[in-house]
Computed example of a mutant assay.
Amino acid sequence: MIENWQHFLLPYQQAVNELKVKLRGMRKQYQDEEQHSPIEFVTGRVKPVESIKEKMVRRHVQPDRLEQDMQDIAGLRIMCQFVEDIYKVVDLLRQRSDMTILEERDYISNVKPSGYRSYHIVIEYPVQLITGEKRILAEIQIRTLAMNFWATIEHSLNYKYQGAFPEELSARLQRAAEAAFRLDNEMSEIREEIKEAQNLFSYKKSTQTAPADAGAAKPKEQE
């Protein structure tokens, strides 16, 4: 068994920190170009030790195979406004040279029976340590805000029922998932209107926070 979990997880935490900076940097580049960013915001985490141990038992993962067989110890989540943005982000990640995509799972086109929708990408990412380079696995989940709301609720309920949802609750969750996806589709239909309105709002906000006029009175000590 792993004796020093803090040491084992250190490169995973470094990977999460670095990837958050890089993914948020992609969003900033779109903003600097005054373009719509397909990335709304980014979160990341390292799976807690107890969750790793529980999954090892549930998935029959041996300690010496943990780094190879558990793909989501390092996890990133990218939130998007529109479904179309998800596939744009996927294309952007495919073009990057600082990570290698190993696997893609499209749960949007191939929705899970529970109603779960998201796009999962498993990458291999090189982390530079004082002992040299270490290539680790990380999972990136890309979803809309509506998909994330549903998935967060379903995940919380799963802790209570351990996946064995009562039939009525399961049916309600499936209907809620379809309602969330209908909302995404409606937003996609009017996305150009939404993006135009957001651009106008951003412009107005920037003009309101512009520096004071250059001809304004100077403080006495500068006169």
Score class of each variant (00 low, 15 high):
residue 1 M to N: 08
residue 2 I to Y: 10
residue 5 W to A: 10
residue 8 F to Q: 12
residue 13 Q to A: 01
residue 16 V to K: 07
residue 22 K to A: 06
residue 23 L to F: 11
residue 24 R to G: 09
residue 25 G to D: 03
residue 26 M to F: 09
residue 27 R to I: 01
residue 28 K to I: 12
residue 32 D to P: 03
residue 36 H to P: 06
residue 37 S to W: 07
residue 40 E to F: 07
residue 40 E to S: 02
residue 42 V to H: 06
residue 50 E to F: 09
residue 53 K to S: 08
residue 56 M to Q: 15
residue 58 R to T: 14
residue 62 Q to D: 15
residue 71 Q to Y: 12
residue 76 L to Y: 10
residue 80 C to P: 03
residue 84 E to L: 01
residue 85 D to G: 05
residue 87 Y to C: 00
residue 87 Y to S: 01
residue 89 V to Q: 01
residue 89 V to P: 02
residue 94 R to G: 02
residue 99 M to D: 09
residue 99 M to A: 12
residue 100 T to V: 12
residue 102 L to S: 15
residue 108 I to K: 05
residue 110 N to Q: 15
residue 111 V to T: 14
residue 113 P to T: 06
residue 113 P to I: 07
residue 114 S to E: 05
residue 115 G to K: 04
residue 115 G to Q: 04
residue 119 Y to N: 07
residue 120 H to N: 08
residue 124 E to Q: 13
residue 124 E to C: 10
residue 127 V to G: 13
residue 129 L to W: 03
residue 130 I to W: 10
residue 132 G to N: 11
residue 137 L to Q: 10
residue 137 L to Y: 08
residue 140 I to E: 09
residue 140 I to P: 03
residue 145 L to G: 01
residue 145 L to W: 04
residue 147 M to A: 00
residue 149 F to K: 04
residue 156 S to N: 14
residue 157 L to R: 14
residue 159 Y to D: 15
residue 160 K to R: 05
residue 160 K to M: 08
residue 161 Y to Q: 13
residue 163 G to Q: 03
residue 168 E to K: 12
residue 169 L to C: 12
residue 174 Q to Y: 05
residue 176 A to F: 15
residue 178 E to W: 04
residue 187 M to H: 00
residue 188 S to R: 00
residue 189 E to H: 10
residue 189 E to D: 08
residue 190 I to V: 11
residue 192 E to H: 12
residue 193 E to M: 13
residue 195 K to Q: 09
residue 197 A to K: 09
residue 197 A to S: 07
residue 197 A to F: 04
residue 201 F to D: 14
residue 204 K to Y: 10
residue 205 K to V: 02
residue 206 S to I: 00
residue 206 S to Q: 10
residue 207 T to A: 04
residue 210 A to K: 09
residue 219 P to E: 08
residue 219 P to G: 02
residue 220 K to R: 08
residue 220 K to E: 14
residue 221 E to G: 03
